[in-house]
Design a protein around this nucleic acid. Structure first.
Lengths: 292, 292
DNA sequence: CGCTGTGATACCTATCCGGTATAAGCCGTT
DNA sequence: AACGGCTTATACCGGATAGGTATCACAGCG
């Protein structure tokens, strides 16, 4: 009665995504009848109707939508387990460190230099990712640790060690009137008519309303900044995109950004511990860990 | 090569916990040879040695310890998926609301009264639990929502709505010298020689050092408070344990406690949403969500 | 009324899971 | 060194069940 297998969950997810037994079976590489039978058996074992087989197709019941969400999460967890185990089984595996492509250049350089000279440190693979990708890479076991930024990144479920705190600056073309100011406010930065702040997609892929240009990747943003088409408010040290014709003006009331090194709470790896130790030694003092 | 089944993970966890194929097989209700074969096959599919079969027994390799931890988490997630789906499939299921046995009595009473009169609200099963149990119940799908206390409880991974904020008080026997004060400090409360603060077990079951009595459940603590054997610092409204011969003295510098209603981030349930709406309506204003 | 597209059913095959019997390896003992 | 025990691995068999093929049942639609 209990003891669902991942195979059944995979099958259910496929059918739920295709809403079509034939296509789902094809995707799974099996024939349609066994798939129908497997789903039926799953429903029986859970004692719950998961799908409405209407004329012309399939629809999820409410319980089906719940299982779809939960099954995806469960399958992700299993996959992460496999990935972490495989990584752990490789003795000379390098540590995978995820970091945003544009930010923390200086931190990363110092960290890599320190690791290179540290006797107990494993080699490091740097994974450059887009905004917000680090959390997923950590959760899925693709990365062992990540440089992240509080309060921008979602640190839930990770252990973190704060490395340093800094204010934020607005990047402006040197010719812009605001560029001569020695500091501006967040409200001013958000209401520059000729330099609207870029819009990032939401989780569902749609864009919020507003005047700013739509961007999906950091390179797109870098392009827009270089062209002087958008205003950027970023941590003071993230100057990777600052071109000679740009000026960085401190934004006084923007929230401070804490750069942290994060790793999965469960991780007991020697190598990760050594990396964290190296990183925090670089920044000397123990800062209060940001929570929330 | 990929596509591990939960059965394999269950088998591996059993062997890892018993460190003995025979006993593990017995626990699983199968014979020993198929279990050996299953583990061997798992190792082969992961391409990782998980166990050292030494003379006289079995030991986990490093990769094995990683998989043990990850497999437990994965199995928990699968179980939670099953449980949530089953609950979702039962249309007239009551909502399970987890709450600490001793705290939030008044909140709970008001909430239940409000729910009883609300037209769109499902019936509620209250699950009274020990300190810190709510998070596990929410994660495992045993509970749909929980009353929790920031910053005491771990809210990571949950959505929350703050209900109210309050200060903390120290509960003292009326005869105690400090009882006549109209307020005390945390430092004072923590250094009362004849009323040491009780010690709770850590996650691993061991107790921190200190003079206070060891407690494991809230009823034990209640007993000690009633006997005047320990000093308690608790949210001002949690007077469930306040006996007539006790006095509550505000602790001025103790952190404020926010009572929140929490639910799994993934939950899209109508019933949970209605409950949260009812709860926050009771407390009128929208408080800032506590972070950190 | 057929035609088309869908999921369900029937039935067969093959995989593989689990059981029994037994071998092989490691220890401590004599 | 041989033996008895304890534990895991191997060999082999039977049965459960996953998966394949063929076909049915049913709904929409021209």
């Amino acid at each position: 009665m209990d003891h669902i297998e991942t195979r059944e969950l995979r099958y259910f997810v496929a059918v739920s995504e295709e809403l079509h037994f034939g296509r789902a079976a094809e995707r799974l590489g099996i024939a349609q009848p066994p798939l129908s039978r497997a789903i039926r058996q799953l429903e029986h074992r859970l004692d719950v109707r998961l799908l409405d087989r209407n004329r012309r197709g399939v629809a999820l019941t409410y319980a089906g939508t719940v299982l779809l969400r939960e099954a995806r999460a469960a399958l992700d967890t299993v996959e992460a387990a496999v990935r972490r185990t495989r990584r752990a089984g490789n003795p000379q595996r390098p540590l995978a460190l995820a970091t945003k492509a544009g930010a923390s250049h200086e931190t990363l350089r110092r960290l890599l230099d320190a690791v290179a000279t540290a006797p107990d440190a494993a080699p490091i693979d740097v994974i450059l990712c887009e905004v917000g990708e680090q959390a997923g890479l950590l959760r899925s076991g693709h990365a062992d640790a990540a440089l992240m930024h509080h309060p921008f990144d979602d640190l839930a479920g990770f252990d973190t060690e704060a490395l340093y705190v800094e204010g934020q600056v607005a990047l402006l073309p040197a010719s812009h009137p605001l560029a001569s100011r020695d500091r501006i406010t967040l409200a001013e930065a958000q209401n520059v008519p000729d330099l609207p702040i870029a819009r990032w997609p939401r989780l569902d892929g749609s864009y919020p309303d507003g005047p700013g240009p739509k961007v999906g990747t950091q390179s797109q943003l870098a392009q827009l900044v270089a062209l002087g088409k958008t205003l950027l408010v970023i941590p003071a040290s993230s100057r990777a995109w600052q071109w000679p014709e740009h000026v960085a003006v401190p934004v006084v009331d923007a929230p401070d950004v804490t750069t942290v090194i994060a790793w999965p709470t469960s991780s007991r790896s020697q190598a990760v511990a050594a990396l964290v130790r190296t990183a925090s030694a670089l920044y000397g003092t123990t800062l209060p860990v940001p929570t929330g």
